[in-house]
Computed example of a mutant assay.
Amino acid sequence: MKTKSRIASIVKANSLDFSITGLQTFDLSVLNLATDLEFQLPTNVRLGHLVEKIVSELIKSSTNYKVLYENIQIIEDTKTIGEIDFIIEDENTKQLIHMELAYKFYLFDPSISHKPINNWIGPNRNDSLKEKLEKLKTKQFPLLYANCTRSTFDTIAIDEVSQALCLLVSLFIPYQYKGSFSPIYQKAIKGYYLNMETFVSLDNSAKNYYIPSKKEWGMDPSENENWTDFNGIEKHITTCINEKQAPLIWQKHKDSYLEFFIVWW
């Protein structure tokens, strides 16, 4: 995995704002950063922790924000009741911000509801945007005001800390879907999803593919150098589908690149 490409993918990632989340937004574009940043990335962590590490290093590398605390477990009666992702400080205003971070891939299933907010689900249908926002509003953000949190951050005036969400998303819509989306959703749409049968029908010898590992999700397919034909990925996809895991596929066709999920449902 190319470190610079992985970092760049997070810097450029689209975030959902207040108009959709109902929560104050922390957008990474507010960070004053040097161009061409590079720093060491951990290799043995899951995607979510990798992104947390990158965002942490971005804030530390900026000239206008600093990290005061990160990944602080909140413990009550020897039991961990939650975790505070970040407490950061705006160097100019000295405002402290409790920032929660999430890096998500959601697929739009128009059959769920007539309200778009309800229709964004995880690739394997086991999580959703609506559930994530509900958890943030009812659990993760209120955690700041718990008594055990106050005692953990006893040098901070908790009631003066603002709160913001950095929700980085890559969105995928049904293949050949004709519906329209608000601009905030639209700019975050990275590709589409389809079933195996449709994928097979669209394949031809001019197309090459790559199945990115989970830690590569969200990176730019055009920077990938390893490609294979359909035969090189068919077995892997079949295994995923049988295990009810929707793989992400990158496709190269001449000079164009696509990314899409193949779903089992």
Rank of each mutant, 00 (worst) to 15 (best):
G191C: 04
I173P: 07
L33G: 03
V263D: 07
E259R: 12
Q24M: 14
L41R: 03
C166E: 08
Q140D: 04
I72M: 13
N147F: 08
G218T: 01
L41C: 03
L41S: 02
E91C: 14
N231V: 07
D229E: 13
L107R: 12
K214R: 09
T35C: 09
I74L: 00
P123Q: 08
D90V: 05
Q186V: 07
I74W: 00
F260I: 06
I84M: 02
H114A: 15
N44P: 08
E216V: 09
D229T: 13
F260Y: 12
I81K: 06
S19P: 07
V45N: 07
T155M: 05
L101D: 05
C148W: 06
E38K: 09
E160Y: 08
L16H: 01
N147W: 10
Y175G: 08
F39D: 04
N224D: 09
W250E: 01
S62M: 03
K139G: 08
L28K: 04
E225Y: 10
K130L: 11
I112R: 11
M1S: 14
V200K: 15
D229C: 10
Y210H: 09
V55L: 01
L258F: 12
K53F: 14
T80E: 02
L101N: 03
N195P: 09
T138F: 03
N126P: 02
E216F: 02
D220M: 06
I20Y: 01
L129H: 11
